[in-house]
Design a binder for these strands. Sequence first.
DNA 1: GTTAGCACTCTGGCACTGAGAGTGCTAACC
DNA 2: GGTTAGCACTCTCAGTGCCAGAGTGCTAAC
Lengths: 353, 353
Amino acid sequence: MARRKDRPGPLDPRSAAILRAIIEEYVATAQPVASQALVVKYHLDVSSATVRNVMAELERAGYLRSPHTSAGRVPTDAGYRLYVESISTAVVLAPVEQLMIRHQFGQVEFASEQWFRLAASTLAGATHSAGLATPAKPDATRLRRLDLVEAGERLASLILVLAEGSVRQLLVPLDEGTDQAGLDSIAGRLNERLSGLAAGDMTPVIRALPLDDDLDRLAARIAERVERAMREFDAMAVDDLFSEGLLNVLAEPEFAQTEKVRRVFALLEDRVYFGDLVHEVTESGDVRIYIGAENRPIELHDVALVLAPYGRPGRASGVVGVLGPTRMAYPHAISTVRYVSALMNELVDHLYA
Amino acid sequence: MARRKDRPGPLDPRSAAILRAIIEEYVATAQPVASQALVVKYHLDVSSATVRNVMAELERAGYLRSPHTSAGRVPTDAGYRLYVESISTAVVLAPVEQLMIRHQFGQVEFASEQWFRLAASTLAGATHSAGLATPAKPDATRLRRLDLVEAGERLASLILVLAEGSVRQLLVPLDEGTDQAGLDSIAGRLNERLSGLAAGDMTPVIRALPLDDDLDRLAARIAERVERAMREFDAMAVDDLFSEGLLNVLAEPEFAQTEKVRRVFALLEDRVYFGDLVHEVTESGDVRIYIGAENRPIELHDVALVLAPYGRPGRASGVVGVLGPTRMAYPHAISTVRYVSALMNELVDHLYA
DNA sequence: GTTAGCACTCTGGCACTGAGAGTGCTAACC
DNA sequence: GGTTAGCACTCTCAGTGCCAGAGTGCTAAC
């Protein structure tokens, strides 16, 4: 059954051009594309009849489908896939847009915690889709410094400054009262011994802590709490998948009824699935694109994801990207995501230097 | 003014009962309510004809409307308003639900920053609407302690622990390099002088700082930065309106087309409007309800808000509440919001004691 | 291989229909 | 007087038939 066009690797140039034109037209209008209209709009040097022949072929090959006999053609997931493959290597974001994005990044204060949110909202704005971002997650968090502050009776606020500059705070109950001076002294001692360490290296150090007086014992217990907290930070799967601009997706005609959207949104809360995805993207090291049914969960069969990793493997990494309808302006989305990911790389280099 | 006639204040008991039944039925089914169905379902001791007469009256009075001649009746905003007014004083949340909510609050760590998020998501879950919450905002933030950590070349991380236990972090550029020891010394000096103060009290203290050597001058500059940051915290209108469970709202039949929802969601970003609203609710001191067109922005004409203040005036306060369709289970929403607000009161008492 | 031409098919809008739902009104009832 | 039974009336909704328009697939000629 060796049909010639069964697995047609490279399409002949004309078919490719027509497929490309159809996709671009459909992306722009959200309407099935007719042969006639294509010829006029894209100045093809052939008649509409020829285009129809090609279309019929492309449909047989699975790249197009017609909603019904007398409608035009609409790209399938496979069609988008082919299209994306043919362009994804080359596209670079227009300098104007680069500038705009860079400018947005310049606006914000240096609060490192917020960068990934900014990335998501920038992506949302630039692509008119939903922007996604995970915070940069260090492979093994190092403690830079800790601090203890009285927080009520027998309660202290433990503040952990992590290597990359982020700050975590938790309350620790104290079995015995101590004043701020005592807490300062404990913090001083622990800083001496623990700062610069990752959770994995803390155990022996903590074992070696003196236990001579009450303060020593309290210090030891706090040290254990610190270690546990550090382990928890490391273990947190995907700390957070932050999304911005879901509204943009709502505005697309394919999401006019809420039901579809609702399911997509609901899936965004699925930490497990997105954890896997983030891992996959990080491993691959470049922009990855998931179109329609290529997404495992059926909730995502109507949308496309364009994701790129950022950061430095072995140090800290995360993922940025966009979520939109499969009818998405891929070249623009890809180049924008790639550009933002590059910006985030710079940032990580800075913070985790 | 002959108020009695055109807006008959106290409805006679039977009309009130019928209005109430209509609202409860409509809330449950989202379908226009017919006279016949009412009689059967609510065991009214009158015939459907009588109910129809009453309905016609209620419609004339503006509490009901019929979508068209042969449909049943649907409550108007005024109808809901009357209904709400007649029940809002008394309702108390069922003990089981109280327990469930308390349990949810128990689950989380002591990280005070997160409580308001928890409130929003609890409210969303309990009412199947969107939960809203603003963080507790102290009237005048006091500094409890500051800390400085090296964060790269000529860059320090300034960590501010505020009186209520929350932590803010910002990066400050240093014109001249200093090592961690220098930073520690500066932090020590500034803590001595600034801790316990609100932004308003810092100016004279900062003026009085010595300026003898480089370190002094650097300390002074950082002190100014601290003061500015504290002022900014105070000024932040409504720090954040956090919402959770917007998905729940999407599921309601009245939001089957996305366009309405999109506008509602978009308005949630309007910090100015919600700032005013939060202020209004805080002033009033009790649950406040905004039904449909009672909301100023037309984007909210299809939804109802049930909001309650929490916290202690003069110390720290915020707002919690829910957003849902005007066709909302008001008694349940009101009692839930009120209960969560009471829980948050306890929390504020604890943290800002 | 390409194209003109035409028959064919399907959708979308419109008008019409009948059934069903629910009301408003009137006249009788208590 | 208020209440009720009964019935005409109105409006929606689903289904049907029809027509115009859009776009294709196919054939035969170039």
